[in-house]
């Protein structure tokens, strides 16, 4: 069984990298300029009234 020190070491090294990398990844995705149009469209898409499947 891993002991307390290993767990602390793991969370302070890889855990921290994981947290920071995930946050950066999400922020990049969200603010990537090319995604802007797609997000705006998605937000608008539910307001339109199209009450049948597309195919």
């Amino acid at each position: 069984m891993p002991d307390h020190d290993t767990a602390v070491w793991l969370s302070k090294s890889y855990g921290l990298v994981y947290l920071v990398a995930l946050s950066l990844g999400v922020l990049l995705y969200v603010y990537w300029p090319a995604n802007r149009k797609r997000f705006d469209q998605a937000a608008e898409s539910i307001i339109r009234y199209e009450d049948r499947p597309w195919r």
């Binding site: 999400v26 969200v30 997000f39 998605a42 937000a43 608008e44 539910i46 307001i47």
Partner: peptide, 17 residues
């Protein structure tokens, strides 16, 4: 909520974050 209010969500980006 957006559907009923007839307005798109204020910030779609924020919803993803």
């Amino acid at each position: 909520l957006p559907k009923r209010a007839g307005r798109p969500i204020y910030s779609y980006r924020m919803s993803i974050i």
